[in-house]
């Protein structure tokens, strides 16, 4: 087991290197650079920029150098702990990302717990009561959840909340706390706001997870070990929880890995709609303005999260499934 984890950990830096190259290549891929879009913005505002000024800007940001040089400079700074400065915001990237990343992770964690806490019991109920009225209800509900774009749900619920209750459900804080320093009261305020984006963001995942859990469990419920457990005189509830549920969860554990980054990248539009101070909208803006160093850092963080997520699910899987554990050792 320990050997297995160490093996995975040793792979980490290597993977991160590959991802950093890809991340850098990706942010370089669109035609033009930050200066191009900056000039376009200025031109749209009616002011012209001279070529000398443009060249000066390019030189200042090191954009006139070959890509490999730019990459090496960029990655070296990151390794030294310097995340660079956002060209667009004129602020250090670390400062821009810091709090947003924490809020994103918190929201992600809440959404994750919500998704599993709701979807797994629904899946278990639907599978053990297949074709019952409630199963059909959940099935319809789940298809709605999967079929409706999350941002659409967010818009509809926002509108309903405003029209009928006069409440604005956007953001993660009440106006008086947005710029306030962290305090217990601010944290409680956060908790009183976070449930709404949690539910909206979690709906789609909940619906999918409940479907998968139902299908997995239905397969397991037909297995001969069920009959054996019944023949032993176990009560139905206990045996369902002990054997098939346990086995139906195994494949789901491996989805935790890609769930982590998906929650961030998948929530960009919803976060924009709901005006959440999370990382998604920041990335969106950085990409539009070609704020390459900020975008690069965020993409690199995504990659890091993907790797960590995979590592977590690998470890969890080895922990709960002896077949995988034995295979590795």
């Amino acid at each position: 087991m320990l050997q297995y984890i160490i093996k995975r950990l040793l792979l980490l830096p290597f993977l991160l290197f590959i991802f950093s190259v890809i991340a850098f290549a990706l942010i370089q891929a669109p035609p033009g650079d930050f200066v191009t879009s900056y000039i376009a913005e200025l031109a749209a505002g009616g002011s012209a920029v001279e070529q000398a000024q443009i060249d000066a800007l390019r030189e200042q940001y090191g954009l006139d150098q070959p890509m490999t040089v730019q990459y090496v400079k960029w990655i070296t700074r990151i390794l030294q702990g310097d995340l660079g400065v956002s060209l667009d915001w004129k602020k250090p990237n670390a400062e821009l990302i810091g709090e947003r990343l924490a809020l994103t992770l918190l929201l992600g964690l809440f959404t994750f717990i919500f998704t599993w806490a709701v979807a797994i019991p629904i899946g278990i109920y639907s599978a053990t009561h297949q074709y019952s009225a409630l199963d059909y209800f959940f099935t319809i509900f789940n298809y709605f959840g999967i079929a409706t774009p999350t941002f659409m749900t967010a818009l509809v619920v926002m509108w309903l909340a405003f029209k009928y209750f006069g409440v604005s459900v956007t953001g993660l804080f009440s106006p008086e706390y947005i710029d306030a320093p962290w305090s217990w009261a601010k944290f409680m305020d956060l908790l009183s706001h976070i449930w709404f984006p949690m539910v909206i963001l979690g709906l789609d995942g909940t619906a999918r997870l409940a479907r998968v859990m139902r299908a997995n469990l239905l397969d397991e419920l037909k297995k001969p070990y069920m009959e054996m457990a019944r023949a032993k005189g176990m009560s139905e509830w206990r045996l369902v929880m002990k054997y098939p549920v346990r086995l139906a969860l195994n494949p789901l554990i491996s989805t935790i890995g890609w769930y982590l980054p998906l929650l961030f990248s998948g929530s960009v539009i919803v976060a924009t709609v709901l005006n959440l101070p999370t990382i998604g909208p920041l990335l969106l803006r950085a990409l539009i303005t070609q704020d390459m160093f900020l975008a690069g850092i965020i993409i690199l963080i995504y990659c890091g999260l993907a790797i960590i997520g995979t590592l977590i699910s690998d470890i969890l899987l080895a922990w709960i499934d002896p077949r995988i554990r034995m295979e590795e050792s």
Partner: peptide, 10 residues
């Protein structure tokens, strides 16, 4: 089938 009648994770 004893293979299938035993749970593989217990």
């Amino acid at each position: 089938e004893p293979m299938a009648a035993f749970s593989p994770v217990h």
